[in-house]
Simulated scan of single mutants.
Amino acid sequence: MTINDDKQKKTMAGGLTDTELAKLRNRFKRDAELLLQPVSEEEEKSKEKADSKPLPRFNRHSVFWILASIGLTYYIDFFRVILENEDIKSWWFNVGLVLLGVCLSLATFCIVYLEWFKGIQHYDQEYPAIPPITTAAFIAASFSFNIALWPVWSFFTPVILFTQFMGVVMIISLLG
């Protein structure tokens, strides 16, 4: 073995010999060529099908929130408290009701009119102002309800309202 052969076998970069470095380069070149090859339409459609496969409507998550909401409504006598308790700050509660009405009206407009009657699936692209308006109105409504109901349930108010919200959302998701 000559000195030149010994130098070639010595490590080049990070402990790799010339032959190992060449193999690595060829492997990366092959992988890059595979990535750059055009994908057939059938493969794209199968990927889209796999990505768009809907989740099952009934799952543990939705059942949990629905049962938690029902149990909480029964346990704290939610509707009786809302209708009869004098500690509720009525001005904030009414503002929350109006803002919640705005949210529900926009959601009904999107789901019933745009999606069912007009057949528009991506209504957020047709009407880009609807999602931010609905979100802002919902956040303001939740703050209003928290302020209005704080004298009744104190620091449990956000937990109670969030549980009720999740229960309603899960019930609505079962309808759609």
Rank of each mutant, 00 (worst) to 15 (best):
L21C: 00
Y74V: 15
R60T: 09
R60S: 10
K53P: 05
C110G: 10
P158D: 01
T19Q: 07
L67E: 00
A22L: 05
R80E: 03
I130R: 02
W116P: 08
L114T: 08
P132R: 09
K89H: 07
I66P: 07
L104C: 04
V102D: 06
E84F: 15
L55C: 02
C110P: 00
L97K: 08
L24W: 03
F165L: 03
A129Q: 04
F165R: 03
V152M: 12
I3Y: 06
K9P: 07
I82Y: 00
I120A: 10
M12G: 11
T134P: 05
T163D: 08
A140N: 10
V98I: 12
K47S: 06
R80A: 12
H122S: 11
Q8F: 01
W92C: 12
L72M: 12
T73K: 00
K10R: 12
E43K: 12
D124R: 14
G96P: 14
K47H: 06
E33P: 05
G15Y: 05
F165G: 10
V169W: 09
F117G: 09
K118A: 13
V39H: 07
R27D: 00
T108I: 14
P54E: 15
I88S: 12
V95Y: 03
C103I: 03
T17E: 00
S40P: 03
R30Q: 01
F156H: 05
L149K: 05
C103M: 05
I133L: 15
A148F: 04
I147D: 06
D87H: 11
P56V: 07
N146G: 13
R25P: 07
N146M: 12
N85W: 06
K89S: 13
W150F: 14
S69N: 10
L67G: 09
L174K: 09
I120W: 01
H61E: 01
V159I: 13
I147M: 04
R25E: 02
L114P: 04
F58L: 08
